[in-house]
Amino acid sequence: MCTTCGCGQADLTLDGHPHTHGHEARPGRRRVSLEQSLLARNDALAAQNRQWLAQRGILALNLVSSPGSGKTTLLEQTILRLQGRIPMSVIEGDQQTSQDADRIRAAGAPALQINTGKGCHLDAHMVGHALEQLDPPAGSVVMIENVGNLVCPAAFDLGEAAKVVILSVTEGEDKPLKYPDLFAAAKLMLLNKVDLLPHVRFDVARCLGYAHRIRPDLEVLPLSAQTGQGFEAWLAWLQAARALAPRA
């Protein structure tokens, strides 16, 4: 039985709503006012995750992108470069297979694979259990690699300190306009695969213009997980974010 989220219990409550009326059994129809976000349960679990992380001084980032943007390669290279400096672990979300978690472990970091089956995104409930099981050390960094999807992960808070969106130059430069919710929810955009820029039609300035139209204060770091170009700035961002991670 889960003690933190109440799953397996029949009495899950709608968080934040006082249950002070409506108990008397009256015949006939009546109206029950709820005024409750449909995401309330997820948001409540996300707040629990956030507190759990803050108590341990752990920085958690939610990595979101389309499939094939290079998230796992980016993580492998980040782990290799930070080895011995920052303890890092990874929660991998995919519909099927544990191939990504296997790659992360091979790179030298603890990893836990969540298979969402039909699910198109991770939610706070899954991540809460993953954190308990992974049990990352205090002061470490947890990377949550979300299911490759530019739509649904925008709506589901996992308790992370920030969302990081990865866009690769082999995709369309207008992705920020096509999927504005996700870009609006992100704090940092990593523009990946910039080593391929000479070979593809991708107007970086236009892409950044679109991204900043959606979120004017979006930070952007161009890099290549394949060649290591731009990695110093990304690692510096990560270290600064870790220093600023909320602590309870």
Partner: peptide, 15 residues
């Protein structure tokens, strides 16, 4: 998720 929450709410609010 909404239906799950409402099933739980039904017991508390008596519907």
């Amino acid at each position: 998720g909404m239906i799950e929450d409402l099933e739980a709410e039904a017991g508390k609010r008596g519907f």
